[in-house]
Design a protein around this nucleic acid. Structure first.
Lengths: 198, 198
DNA sequence: AATCTCAGCTTACAACTGTACGCTAATTTA
DNA sequence: TAAATTAGCGTACAGTTGTAAGCTGAGATT
């Protein structure tokens, strides 16, 4: 294995180790450089060969989480095209994502209100991204102006994220009920917005 | 001053000191016993005369924050009775609360998704309380069944809290815009829910 | 083949943490 | 007034943290 390959592999080990540590009782600001290094199987000081700071690692993790989120959206769109309601399919996809990538979603959720301004901003950008893409989709699908679509998209994303937060604490059957509730609530928003069309 | 009075005063000093430390870059799990004690003007070991743990202090703070939230609701109701739209008045009251009690709201917001299951549950209870009271109010005001009112109340509280989170990062003019946006979104929910009324 | 580069290591240190232990001084109780 | 209680203190210790300094050995370059 070449030196470059080895380095990339170690870097990935660090990232994976960090995600493993980010369980329900650990936030980015609560995992230490030494802890991550230990879990990645390297000496604490070797960490610096890959990241300037633990903050640089944190931002990398947020980026990766954002990436996963965007992939989720693409997946949802593909599923919508093969039939099934927009709201139902989107929520189902989201809930599956949370189940399969719990720590990734938890990272976004937690750092969104966390103690680091840099992380908060990074997460905010990802969510904004999410809202903008949904706005475009709504404009395209319904016949509404940008202002109305944007309000609607923002409300929907907020409701889904908030429901996701609750789902993290819930077991499988309760998770399903949370999904159903948020679907109804998204329909409220959708139908309520229509009234204000032009 | 009696011994009991003195003790209560010191206890309050500790609580106030903790709230002061809970600014934008400090969470409950990030403030240390020694730090709080220092800010309260007592020796680290004296802390134990008042709280078993720093966790016990944390739960106390969450309780106090929940109390403040409930007082907010009462205040909003009083203002509604003296005229003004329900949604407008409620959102305005909420935004004023956030401005005047930033650290209190931040505590709730942060610990809602924080690293301590005990804190998360404590905050959740407070939010549930909030939702239930709003549910009752909606049942009373509109003519809807419990199921529908509950869905509506939950959606509204989630939207308002989420907007509050964004407002924390914003300056005064942007805060006002956030307020206006969430007002529109609450109307979406309200009007959308009406459609499903039996 | 000789040289350079650099990922990872060991050692070291100062700063901080929670908390155990025992003392003091002053209020409260008997 | 004598005895008991207790809020607060000082000292102490083991554990953790981030990171500086310098070494090693193996891959990369010439």
């Amino acid at each position: 294995m070449s030196r470059q390959e080895q380095k990339l592999k170690t870097r990935q080990n660090i990232i994976n180790a960090a995600f493993t540590l980010l369980d329900e009782n650990r936030s980015l600001s609560a995992i230490s450089l030494r802890e991550v290094s230990r879990a990645a199987g390297i000496a604490p000081t070797s960490f610096y060969r890959h990241f300037k700071d633990i903050d640089e690692l944190g931002l990398t993790l947020v980026d990766e989480a954002g990436l996963a989120l965007r992939q989720l959206m693409r997946q949802a769109r593909r599923r919508i095209e093969t039939g099934g309601g927009v709201i139902d399919t989107s929520v189902d996809t989201f809930m599956e994502f949370i189940t399969a990538n719990t720590n990734v979603f938890r990272l976004l959720l937690r750092e969104h209100t966390g103690t680091s301004a840099a992380y908060r901003m990074a997460v905010l950008r990802e969510i904004q991204h999410f809202i903008e893409e949904l706005t475009d989709y709504i404009i395209e699908q319904q016949n509404v102006d940008h202002q109305l679509a944007s309000l609607q998209a923002e409300a929907m994303v907020r409701l889904v994220f908030s429901a996701g937060a609750e789902a993290l604490e819930a077991d499988v059957p309760l998770r399903k009920e949370i999904g159903n509730r948020v679907k109804s609530q998204l329909r409220f928003v959708q139908h309520g917005a229509v009234i204000y069309r032009n």
